[in-house]
Each structure stands twice: as C-alpha cells, then as structure tokens.
Design a binder for these strands. Structure first.
Length: 248
DNA sequence: CTGGGGACGGGGCCC
DNA sequence: AGGGCCCCGTCCCCA
C-alpha cells in the first residue's frame, strides 16, 4: 500500500479503498494503542513532520475545555469505500522544505500558501479588511473572503428536490440522501454512512472511553455534542453554560 | 436526559 | 486564483 500515515487527522487512519482486513500491519498500532494516542505519538515523534494545518489536535487528557483523553478504538476500525481519501498518498518522502509563519509557527508546503495564511493575521480594522456585501461579515483574508462569498451563491441545485447548495460536495452529500448511497463504512461494526463526519462521530461511540467531561458534575460523554447537550439541559438548566464553572 | 444518527455549513489546505 | 477535498462543528430528530 502506498498510503502514508500522515499528520494525525482521523482521515490518516481511513484507508482509501475497501477495508481489507489485516493486510496492512503498518497502520496498526501496538495494542492497546488507540486512535488518539496514535495521533499524539505521531506528533511527538522527533522526526515526524509537524501538522501542516491549524486543525485542532486532540492532545491527551480529558477534553475539559481544551484537552482530550486518550483511549478509544484502534486505527484499523475505519474503512472507506469511495476511494476519495487521496490526500495522504505521498510520493516517496516529499522532502520538505516547510514555510513557517513567523507569527504562529504554522508551516506550509509553499511560500504562496504561507503568504495566504499570513493574511489571516491582519487585524480586523486593517485597511485591507473587506466586508461581505451580502451579510456584512468582515474578512481580513482575501481567500477566506472569496470562500465566504461562495456561501451566498447557491448554484448547485438538486435535480430531485430543488434544494440548492453553495458547494458541489455539499450537493454530492445531499444527493446521497436520495440515492441511499453510503460509502463510509465502519470496520468495527459494519454500519455504513453517507457522510464522513457522521462516521467519525459514530466511531467515537465505539470508544470505550468518554472523552468529554462536564466541568460541574464530572459526568463524561463520548461526544462533545453530548456534553454540549448536557450543558444546555441537565447540569446547567436555567443558567448560562459555564465558561469556567466551579469545579466543586 | 442521554445516545445516536442524518444532514448540512463554514473554513482551511493542497493542487 | 479556483476547484476539490477534508475536517470540525452544529442543528435537528428520534429511540
């Protein structure tokens, strides 16, 4: 397999084709390692490439505000059948001059990408800031602005129900609700999903460990959304969900 | 109330 | 610069 485990995204553990059982020992972490510990260890490996995007990283410990626990399901519990996870197919060690942002340290493959990223550090009152004519939202980064403008242009329309979307892949996902296609399968239980995010959430339900902990009552939840629901109902009914609740 | 799934949007990165 | 892909997150509904 030419698939290369990359930077700790969950997708790094999703194989690009039908799950083939045990054929790739390389993606198995030594038991009883888990998805999240694998993430952590990759980041921690001295010669591993740093994450190349600012996506959040689950770093170990409870997600109790900012940190997460490490324990869950092993990396071989995903399989994907649509062959869409191309991203991490790297050709023999892309080596690798990274371009790092002097302000935040994030690194990028090209200077052009770094230059785009640097726009995000402009202040909101920068002369270069632009306002969306439709909704008034202000952007300091032109790529982000361009992207945002697309969200007002719903040109991808479903032939079946007429619903329109701003992105082609949003339409693609929507179409699956008509066709019943479910290309994202859980290798743990076999359940299939039309949406990758939903598979990801599902995978968390297989986790033996609950990663999210209520700051007030210490009850734990497998998904952040469950914890949020808990904040909105049980534990903090009638009060504002805490930014920094009392621990005792 | 919690657990789980379906549908979807925004934004970031790479090519 | 634009398109494609992906991730994170949210909302809603139901059991």
């Amino acid at each position: 397999m030419t698939f290369v485990m990359g930077h700790g995204y969950i997708s790094d553990y999703i194989t690009p084709s039908v799950y083939d059982g045990d054929s790739n020992g390389a993606i198995k972490v030594p038991s009883p390692d888990t998805l999240y510990t694998a993430v952590q260890s990759e980041y921690g490996a001295p010669d591993s490439e740093p994450p190349d995007s600012p996506r959040s990283e689950i770093t170990g410990g409870y997600i109790n505000g900012d940190t997460a626990v490490s324990e869950g399901y092993s990396v071989d519990t995903f399989f994907i059948t649509d062959g869409r996870s191309r991203r991490k197919v790297l050709t023999g060690g892309r080596s690798i001059q990274r371009h790092s942002c002097s302000e935040c340290g994030k690194s990028y493959a090209t200077s052009s990408n770094l230059s785009r990223h640097k726009q995000t550090h402009r202040s909101l009152d920068s002369k270069l800031a632009k306002k969306c004519p439709t909704c008034g939202k202000v952007y300091v980064s032109m790529p982000a602005m361009a992207m945002h403008l697309l969200t007002h242009d719903l040109k991808h329309k479903c032939d079946t129900c007429g619903k329109a979307f701003s992105r082609p892949w949003l339409l693609q996902g929507h179409l699956r609700s008509h066709t019943g296609e479910k290309p994202f399968g859980c290798a743990h239980c076999g359940k299939a999903f039309a949406d990758r995010s939903n598979l990801r959430a599902h995978m968390q339900t297989h986790s033996a460990f609950k990663h999210y902990k209520c700051k007030r009552c210490s009850k734990t939840f497998a998904l952040k959304s469950y914890l949020n629901k808990h904040y909105e109902s049980a534990c903090f009914k009638g009060s504002v969900p805490p930014l920094s609740p009392e621990e005792d």
